[in-house]
Design a protein around this nucleic acid. Structure first.
Lengths: 170, 170
DNA sequence: TATTGTTATACTCTATAACTATA
DNA sequence: TATAGTTATAGAGTATAACAATA
């Protein structure tokens, strides 16, 4: 059906490009707003948002890295930046002494709340305002399916980020 | 209809997150492939792809920057990297002496062709294979509309990238 | 021995401002 | 005076590998 192995047909190319272009423009706009309005990068905003939604405002480093950043050291770096800014705190986990628990601070929550309205404005102006409710529903359903597929089937040579990793050699 | 000024409803949030998550995972996977397989970054790949499609394999720096990179110096940097690698060449434009014309070399085209099949495989596996033809059509149409809206209406305080820029002060 | 997280390090990339040259 | 592009520079971010500590 999709001519496996061959080049992409125009419809496929158009869909791929549209996705990348829209997301890229949106992310750039959002990033600019976050930087100006709250001194936050996109990754930092995501970390705070996740912590804010997590029970108790906390998560383990590994769970946090899963889906936000693509390397452990990357998260360590970002957590350090956020901690220095007083937006999160880190402490050894009680149950597993190897783990570090990251907790969003009151300041972190406050900053998030302060930044959120403007963030939403940007998302609305650039993205949501151009969609009907039906469009949005379809888009979400379709992209949700794609996301599930991605998560289920990691591409060749890419290990899933948090489960048991099977390796052939060193 | 969309409660302007208020928070996003769950459907809007879900759509926004789905878009960002899918595009981010896809871009990361594609970037990894391009790096391993061709030593190219995402931006560099886009530059080569645009030049490859352009008549004569050439474009002016400004036209190239428009839509690929977000600052002129950023493109100068990338063009320098690509030129050093022998994938593009730069020469002064004939008609406008201020302009620089970037041209993709044979090596550049060859590298692009070599990398493309694997690139397409990744896009297929992670993205296209999870969509029906109808899904794809709808997605493309909807995202195309969003893209047009973005291009037409630059967000508050963001100047369009290539037209006359109105400034209040320094 | 595997997992969690940090550190050191090197590298890529981006943006700002100052600058040159042409229109 | 405005536009096209480069340079210098500084800063943010990322990944890899080596490391320490716990399971």
């Amino acid at each position: 059906m999709t001519r496996k192995g061959g080049p992409l047909d125009p419809a496929q190319l158009a869909g791929y490009f549209a996705l990348m272009e829209v997301s890229s423009l949106l992310q750039h706009a959002v990033e600019q707003h976050l930087r100006v309005d709250g001194g936050l990068s996109w990754v930092q905003f995501q970390i705070l948002a996740r912590l804010n939604d997590a029970p108790g405002g906390q998560q383990r480093m590994t769970d946090l890295a899963d889906g936000v950043v693509y390397s452990r050291s990357g998260l360590t770096y970002q957590a350090g930046v956020l901690e220095k800014a007083g937006l999160v705190s880190r402490s050894p986990s009680t149950d597993d002494e190897r783990s570090t628990t990251v907790t969003i601070t009151e300041e972190g929550r406050a900053l998030l709340l302060r930044v959120l309205p403007g963030h939403i404005d940007v998302v609305r102006e650039l993205f949501l305002d151009h969609l009907s409710a039906d469009d949005l529903a379809v888009l979400t359903e379709v992209l949700g399916r794609v996301r599930d597929g991605m998560r289920a089937a990691p591409p060749r040579s890419a290990a899933p980020r948090s489960s048991r990793t099977a390796r052939a050699s060193g």
